[in-house]
Amino acid sequence: MKSLIKDYLTVTKKEWNGLVVLILLIIAVWMAPVVYQRVHKDKLINLNGFDATAARLHMQPTDTAATIAVKMFRFNPNHLPATDWQKLGLNDHQITTIQHYEAKGGRFYTKADLKKIYAITAIDYKRLEPYINLPEKDDYTEKSFTIVELNSADSTRMTTIRGIGPGYAVRIIRYRDRLGGFYKKEQLKEIFGIDSLMYHDLAPQVSVDAARISKINLNIVTLNNLLVFPYLSYKQKNAIVEYRNQHGNYAALDDLKNIPIIDDGILSKIAPYITFK
C-alpha cells in the first residue's frame, strides 16, 4: 500500500521542471499589467491648451465669403455676380445653390422669390430684403397675357413663357417632336432641367391641345420610325413590329398585352400616341 502511494506522489525531475516553468509563467502574466503601468504612465491632457486651439479653429474663415467685408447695397438678384453675393455676406454654398437655380431657368420676380432658395436662411433673407431691387408682390398674374399652347408654339413663342430661354425652348420642341406632341402639361417634367419647382412656375402659362398629337399607326410603322419614340425601349419597339409581322395587324391596344415585355404601365403611357388605322 505504501509503495502504491509513494509511486503516485513521486514527481520526476522532468515533471518538477515543468511545474516550475508553469509557476514562473503565471507570476509573469500576473505582474505584466503592474510593470506596464509603472513604465508607461498616462500623460494628462492640457484642457486649457485644447480649448484655446479649438477656439482658434472656430474663428478661422470656412469659405471665401468670410474673408470679404460685408457691404450692403441695392441689388437685383437675377444673374448677380458671385463676387457681389460675397460682398452681401453669402457663402460659397449659398452662391452655388443660387447659380444652379438660375441655370435651370429659375428667375426672381419678387423679393419673396429669394426665399425659394433653401440655402437662404430666414436670418439671411431678413438682412437682404431691404436691399432687394424687386417689387414686393408679383403683379404678373394681374396683367393680361396669352397662354402658350405647347404643341403648336415655335421657339420664338416658347421664349415668351416666363422662365423659358432659348435653350429650354429648343429642349421642349425637340422632346415634343420625339413624342409626337404633349397630351398633358406634366410631361414637361420629363425634360432634363425642368424640376417640380420650375414646373410650378410654368404650368399656369401653358396649355396643351391633345388633338394636335401626331399618332403612331402600329399597323404600318417601321422599326426605324419608332426609334425616336421615348416611351419604349429598343426591345419593346422591335417586339411590337415582330409580333405584327408574325400575327397580323393589331385591332386594339389590348393586343399589345400579348407581348410579354409590355406591361400595363407602358400601355397607359403610350395609349395617347397609338392608333390602328
Rank of each mutant, 00 (worst) to 15 (best):
S3A: 08
L4H: 02
I5F: 10
K6R: 07
D7I: 02
D7H: 00
V11A: 10
T12C: 06
L19A: 14
L22N: 04
I23T: 12
L24A: 14
I26Q: 11
I27H: 04
A28M: 07
P33F: 06
R38F: 13
R38D: 15
K41C: 03
K43V: 06
L44Y: 00
N46G: 08
N46D: 15
G49S: 14
D51T: 08
A55R: 07
R56L: 14
R56S: 12
R56A: 13
L57A: 09
H58S: 15
A66H: 09
I68R: 06
V70C: 09
F73I: 04
F75W: 00
P77L: 10
P77F: 06
L80E: 01
T83C: 12
T83M: 10
G89R: 02
D92I: 12
Q94W: 01
I95H: 00
T96V: 08
T97P: 00
I98K: 04
Q99S: 13
H100C: 03
E102C: 07
G106K: 01
D113R: 08
L114T: 04
K115I: 03
K116P: 09
K116R: 13
T121D: 04
T121P: 08
A122W: 02
Y125F: 15
R127S: 06
L134E: 11
D139V: 11
D139Q: 14
E142V: 02
E142P: 00
K143M: 07
S144I: 12
I147L: 07
A153K: 01
A153V: 02
S155A: 11
T156M: 08
T156L: 13
M158D: 07
M158H: 06
T160I: 05
G167V: 12
R176D: 02
D177L: 08
L179A: 07
L179Q: 04
F182Q: 06
Q187R: 05
L188C: 09
G193V: 05
D201H: 12
A203P: 11
V206L: 02
S207D: 13
I213N: 03
N217G: 01
I220M: 08
I220W: 05
Y234D: 15
K235M: 06
L253T: 03
D254Y: 00
D254K: 10
P260V: 01
I270T: 01
